[in-house]
Design a protein around this nucleic acid. Structure first.
Lengths: 198, 198
DNA sequence: TGTTTAATAGACCAAACGTTCTACATTGGA
DNA sequence: TCCAATGTAGAACGTTTGGTCTATTAAACA
């Protein structure tokens, strides 16, 4: 057997350290050395559980995807019972996220930036994450009975990306509230749901 | 004298190579070695004209800022005589840019992602570029006599960022047209300029 | 003409990096 | 009790990286 598959203390510590360091310092900006130090784990343990740095990166991206989507969905679900309010709560979630001390933009945008080739495995994982988020937003729009919910979701997702990078490049710009305001206008200006149709 | 200051063939070749490589492969993803090879220039020539890799990076960022803003302003100016149409032309410019074969997102967003610390010199240059772009958009909005032109410009800039990263992570998503459509809605839903006021 | 100045080629260096290897300790079942 | 799994510490390896040093050439110019 080359690499273990079920979690162990060392593996967990490594993933946790990788998650934090890859996120804040980027992938190329984070050395194996620093990860080992942060995790308080022996060198060999890394290669016991991951076949290479790239393997650890992939694990980080998958974990981050799972966690981030969980955070957003949990926040939105807890924000209100009204499906329409849940849509707007997306941007309240962003505001919370931006206020976190270690906020460094979106891990997947950053990864796609570091690995520009769209066919690079890491870039593919980034695109997959964004597709998943878009799906979540579509679900919220549908639940709120908003007309053309898929088209609207694309717009709301674009606003989200805009808010994230604006806040990343220029912290304190209040981009989350800005995006929320735009979202409100977009939804208000929508054609009303035609309850006729046969 | 340590480093020359006026342009020379070798310096130009280096800057050109750096501009292209730093943009598409990122800063940490681009070695001095590859830059020298691409520029067809001797190793020593680099350190004759720039005090270090970081110096070359700074030169790249300044040049890129100058050029990109020039591209956008030229495009917009050439697009129409109508100031309002010029505002919308921002997103036509994006569409053109996205279609370029070497499109790799915004060099400054990418740089801010690679150097997450907002006080890092490169991050600062990124933020300064975005501030400059925002200023350009404000100018366009003001020329189009759009009410609350500064607040509107912030929204239009956010749409721009959203379009850029959406297209970067998921090429072919048509984010430029999407952003333009949202911009249209935003401008239409604005309060009309009150020509009364005293 | 002789002197800068910019350029070249390529050896060299120390550090960092990802990775492998060896040797040893702990621990929980079979 | 013994084995296998999981862990540790740390040396070592080959490569890459950013940067320096030396030596040489070619053109600009007073």
């Amino acid at each position: 057997m080359r690499t273990s598959t079920r979690p162990t203390p060392a593996k967990d510590a490594l993933l946790e350290a990788a998650c934090s360091l890859f996120y804040t310092n980027g992938i190329r900006g984070t050395s194996i050395e620093i990860i080992l130090e942060r995790a308080g784990v022996a060198r060999q343990s890394l290669y016991q559980h991951f076949e290479s740095k790239d393997g650890l990166v992939a694990a980080f991206l998958n974990l981050r995807d799972e966690r981030w989507c969980g955070w957003m969905n949990d926040f939105v679900a807890a924000a209100s019972d009204d499906p329409l309010e849940q849509v707007f709560a997306i941007y309240d979630f962003l505001e919370d996220w931006f206020a976190q001390s270690d906020f460094s933009g979106c891990a997947f945008i950053n990864t796609a930036a570091e690995y520009s080739n769209p066919e690079h495995p890491f870039h593919v994982l980034a695109a997959r994450h964004k597709a998943r988020v878009l799906g979540d937003i579509e679900r919220l729009c549908k639940a709120a009975k908003l007309p053309e919910h898929k088209a609207l979701a694309k717009q709301l997702a674009l606003l989200m990306e805009g808010a994230i990078v604006t806040e990343q490049v220029t912290p304190g710009s209040g981009a989350a509230a800005e995006a929320k305001a735009i979202a409100r206008i977009l939804i208000q200006s929508r054609p009303q749901p035609t309850r006729s149709k046969k």
